[in-house]
Design a protein around this nucleic acid. Sequence first.
DNA 1: TAGATTGTTAATCGATTAACAATC
DNA 2: TAGATTGTTAATCGATTAACAATC
Lengths: 222, 222
Amino acid sequence: MKRLKVSNNVIRRLPRYLRKLDELTENGVSRISSFELGHQLGLTPSQIRQDFSCFGEFGQQGYGYNVVALRQQIAMILGMDRGFKAILIGVGNIGRALMENFCFNDWGFELAAAFDIKPALIGTEYKGVPIYGIDELESYLAEHQISVAVLTVPKTVAINVTETLTGNGIDAIWNFTNVELTEPNSSTIVENVHFSDSLLALSYYVSERRDEEAAKAARAEK
Amino acid sequence: MKRLKVSNNVIRRLPRYLRKLDELTENGVSRISSFELGHQLGLTPSQIRQDFSCFGEFGQQGYGYNVVALRQQIAMILGMDRGFKAILIGVGNIGRALMENFCFNDWGFELAAAFDIKPALIGTEYKGVPIYGIDELESYLAEHQISVAVLTVPKTVAINVTETLTGNGIDAIWNFTNVELTEPNSSTIVENVHFSDSLLALSYYVSERRDEEAAKAARAEK
DNA sequence: TAGATTGTTAATCGATTAACAATC
DNA sequence: TAGATTGTTAATCGATTAACAATC
């Protein structure tokens, strides 16, 4: 029953497998080998089999993997069947964009409530989700079993709100602010979505390519 | 002059260093050792010195690193001083949220234009950025030197738009759609922002913790 | 049965950590 | 000068890849 700790690298690949399997299902593919799956994802067949073997035996020799069954296993591993509840803090632009476009249900989450400080928003609903005042947050958390807080507040209040969240039984924070919340002391799980980090990595690779091209051109001129 | 290829892991840490250094500057800290920087970021001093040494010698024995100077070096490594231009495709909720909230300039980018298919938007401006029709995209790319396309279109048209982009000299795509664009054939740089992958990783870690707690409780009961 | 493909063990490769001489 | 801390080389650790017996 006791499973060896699975490395973060493996965990980060699981959602990609899930998306690919969904895509295969959509296209009517019902079985796939580690060779073909690896090819489509840019991974080696070995790695794929190693990854899966962290959690059990999902394939069949000589056949491969059943796409639907494998998808379901991975969904379970990721906890998509647990009905985790989430709340969203900060109904600004990013908050609204998430409420409108991101389908929490598709990934096994229920967005139960949102919180903001703006009086005009409090008491209203947005996309079927009730919006409460930020001062009601503490009592709300006491009365409801909430796992995840989606943090979409302005930078300036992020630390403050985080303290309220961690102090009142939130398991994890999905952090969209630019603030680094990963404190060494806290036991709260933090998942950062730092747009800027992503863009800067892109920027590096574009720069690198430009330099390579420039070097090539310089060599050609001589 | 020729630098050994730097690993992706190192590149992904650079933006974190940058943010931390900005925070230190804000707090009036002007010098820092690899020991202290590592402590604040949850990394070993060794790793930090190794990372920097991929790009040069930025510290001083017995002193540490000058926060402002180091920040500037990292910014250059990431290409933040190159004035890369970007365009945004798809002025929906996510697109608008980015245009409103994400400060491209802060990270060295200029958002030069946006494109959409909706007639009501075409010809207007949003946050100072002109919006053109999607049919003008090809001629626009021919006339302007654009490095990066921010892809915030609906899933259904993502592939189509991508082909236009890659076929007309775009270096990189910052992909906010749920579609996996990393084609094995294309040479375009793709940086994916998959919200769902991030949330599912979070979901896994919450599940794991819940299981641990349940196991603990079960043991205590015996 | 023969061919295909798994799950797993062993080998390789790469990334992180430790150690230390150099030097501010 | 003495203490601190770098940059770098060597040692360790972990992740990926290769190989292959098991078996559908």
